[in-house]
């Protein structure tokens, strides 16, 4: 399954596309569609009113688990949840098995 994401133009925050033309910083809000519908989701995201409030929207692979959406790649999990690196960022993503 796939969804559309980009970074918000004015502040760079990762945002996720919701069918109907809105963007949300919460990954769980994203419209997650079958691969067969991914291209039309991207087309809808790109076709929104100009100027687009988002930089370089792209499709990424994701799944829904226990009611939550998760990006498949580590990069997307870090984009969604923040750095894994501790106190200065006030954010921490724990990745089991990692250093």
């Amino acid at each position: 399954m796939q969804l559309v994401t980009g970074n918000r133009l004015r502040d760079g925050v990762p945002v996720y596309f919701i069918e109907g033309g809105r963007w949300s910083p919460a990954l769980d809000d994203a419209s997650l569609v079958d691969d067969s519908k991914a291209d039309s989701l991207l087309a809808e995201a790109l076709g929104g009113p100009k100027p687009l409030p988002v930089v370089a929207p792209i499709l990424i692979e994701a799944t829904r688990q226990n009611g939550h959406i998760e990006g498949l790649s580590l990069r997307e999990r870090i984009r969604a949840q923040g750095p894994t690196t501790g106190p200065m960022t006030h954010q921490r993503l724990v990745i089991p098995g990692a250093s």
Partner: peptide, 9 residues
Amino acid sequence: GLYLQLHAY
């Protein structure tokens, strides 16, 4: 000097 990174500029 402004880049767009994963979480912000």
